[in-house]
Lab assay of single mutants.
Amino acid sequence: TFTSIVTTNPDFGGFEFYVEAGQQFDDSAYEEAYGVSVPSAVVEEMNAKAAQLKDGEWLNVSHE
């Protein structure tokens, strides 16, 4: 299960995956970082959410 939350205070020191406002979700980078295949429906969902981000916001993507 993939989830996401919007934050204005990303923790770059941890093992977190963020999408910056104005960027798209990079499923290849996510797969490389976590060894998890990302279904195309999830990629579309995360890109739709990322498109709604305002300046200074980040989308924190995770999975269980």
Score class of each variant (00 low, 15 high):
1 T>Q: 15
1 T>I: 15
1 T>A: 15
1 T>E: 14
2 F>N: 07
2 F>E: 09
2 F>D: 07
2 F>R: 07
2 F>P: 08
2 F>L: 09
2 F>Q: 08
2 F>Y: 07
3 T>W: 10
3 T>K: 08
3 T>D: 10
3 T>I: 15
3 T>Y: 11
4 S>T: 10
4 S>G: 14
4 S>N: 04
4 S>Y: 09
4 S>K: 04
4 S>A: 12
5 I>T: 15
5 I>R: 06
5 I>H: 13
6 V>T: 07
6 V>N: 01
6 V>K: 00
6 V>Y: 00
6 V>M: 05
6 V>W: 00
6 V>Q: 02
7 T>G: 03
7 T>A: 04
8 T>R: 10
8 T>P: 05
8 T>M: 11
8 T>L: 09
8 T>Q: 10
8 T>A: 08
8 T>W: 07
8 T>D: 09
8 T>Y: 08
8 T>F: 07
8 T>C: 09
9 N>L: 08
9 N>V: 09
9 N>A: 11
10 P>S: 02
10 P>M: 04
10 P>V: 04
10 P>C: 08
10 P>T: 03
10 P>D: 03
11 D>W: 10
11 D>Q: 11
11 D>C: 14
11 D>I: 13
11 D>F: 11
11 D>V: 13
11 D>Y: 09
12 F>T: 06
12 F>W: 11
12 F>P: 07
12 F>K: 07
13 G>D: 13
13 G>L: 11
13 G>M: 10
13 G>I: 07
13 G>E: 13
14 G>K: 09
14 G>C: 12
14 G>H: 08
14 G>M: 07
14 G>D: 08
14 G>P: 08
15 F>P: 11
15 F>A: 13
15 F>E: 13
15 F>S: 14
15 F>H: 15
15 F>M: 14
15 F>Y: 12
16 E>D: 12
16 E>S: 09
16 E>C: 14
17 F>R: 01
17 F>S: 02
17 F>K: 01
17 F>P: 00
17 F>V: 04
17 F>H: 04
18 Y>N: 03
18 Y>F: 09
18 Y>E: 02
18 Y>A: 02
19 V>E: 04
19 V>I: 13
19 V>A: 00
20 E>N: 06
20 E>T: 08
20 E>Y: 07
20 E>M: 10
21 A>E: 04
21 A>M: 07
21 A>N: 07
21 A>V: 08
22 G>Y: 05
22 G>R: 05
23 Q>K: 13
23 Q>F: 11
23 Q>I: 04
23 Q>R: 09
23 Q>N: 10
24 Q>V: 12
24 Q>C: 10
24 Q>G: 09
24 Q>T: 13
24 Q>Y: 12
24 Q>D: 09
24 Q>A: 12
25 F>I: 03
25 F>W: 04
25 F>M: 07
25 F>V: 01
25 F>H: 02
26 D>Q: 06
26 D>L: 07
27 D>K: 15
27 D>Y: 15
28 S>E: 12
28 S>W: 11
28 S>I: 13
28 S>Q: 15
28 S>G: 12
29 A>K: 12
29 A>Y: 07
29 A>E: 07
29 A>I: 07
30 Y>N: 01
30 Y>K: 01
30 Y>G: 03
31 E>Y: 14
31 E>A: 12
31 E>G: 09
31 E>P: 00
31 E>K: 12
32 E>F: 10
32 E>D: 11
32 E>C: 13
32 E>G: 08
32 E>H: 13
32 E>L: 14
32 E>R: 14
32 E>T: 10
32 E>N: 11
33 A>Q: 15
33 A>V: 11
33 A>H: 12
33 A>C: 14
33 A>E: 08
34 Y>S: 04
34 Y>W: 09
34 Y>T: 10
34 Y>A: 03
34 Y>Q: 05
35 G>I: 02
35 G>S: 07
35 G>Y: 02
35 G>N: 08
35 G>H: 09
36 V>Q: 06
36 V>K: 06
36 V>R: 05
36 V>D: 04
36 V>I: 14
37 S>R: 13
37 S>P: 12
37 S>G: 06
38 V>A: 03
38 V>Y: 00
38 V>K: 00
39 P>R: 00
40 S>T: 13
40 S>R: 15
40 S>C: 13
41 A>M: 11
41 A>S: 13
41 A>K: 12
41 A>G: 11
42 V>W: 05
42 V>M: 05
42 V>K: 03
42 V>G: 01
42 V>Q: 03
42 V>F: 07
43 V>P: 00
43 V>N: 05
43 V>G: 03
43 V>K: 11
43 V>T: 12
43 V>E: 01
43 V>W: 06
44 E>P: 03
44 E>N: 11
44 E>A: 13
45 E>Q: 10
45 E>S: 09
45 E>D: 08
45 E>L: 10
45 E>K: 06
45 E>I: 11
46 M>N: 02
46 M>W: 08
46 M>E: 01
46 M>F: 10
46 M>T: 03
46 M>R: 00
47 N>T: 09
47 N>M: 06
47 N>W: 01
47 N>P: 01
47 N>F: 03
47 N>Y: 01
47 N>K: 07
47 N>Q: 07
47 N>R: 09
48 A>V: 10
48 A>Y: 08
48 A>G: 09
48 A>M: 13
49 K>M: 10
49 K>E: 05
49 K>D: 03
49 K>Y: 00
49 K>W: 00
50 A>G: 04
50 A>H: 01
50 A>T: 07
50 A>N: 02
50 A>S: 07
51 A>G: 09
51 A>K: 12
51 A>S: 12
51 A>N: 07
51 A>M: 08
51 A>V: 06
52 Q>W: 06
52 Q>I: 09
52 Q>P: 02
52 Q>G: 10
53 L>Q: 00
53 L>V: 02
54 K>F: 06
54 K>Y: 04
54 K>H: 09
54 K>M: 10
55 D>M: 10
55 D>R: 08
55 D>N: 12
56 G>M: 04
56 G>C: 05
56 G>K: 02
56 G>H: 05
56 G>T: 04
56 G>V: 02
57 E>K: 00
57 E>Q: 09
57 E>R: 00
57 E>F: 03
57 E>M: 01
57 E>S: 03
58 W>M: 11
58 W>S: 03
58 W>A: 03
58 W>G: 03
59 L>Y: 00
59 L>Q: 01
59 L>W: 01
60 N>K: 15
60 N>V: 15
60 N>H: 15
60 N>W: 15
61 V>S: 00
61 V>K: 01
61 V>C: 03
61 V>A: 01
61 V>T: 03
61 V>P: 02
63 H>R: 06
63 H>E: 03
63 H>N: 06
63 H>M: 07
63 H>L: 06
63 H>Y: 13
63 H>C: 04
63 H>V: 06
64 E>F: 05
64 E>L: 11
64 E>P: 10
64 E>V: 15
64 E>K: 14
64 E>S: 14
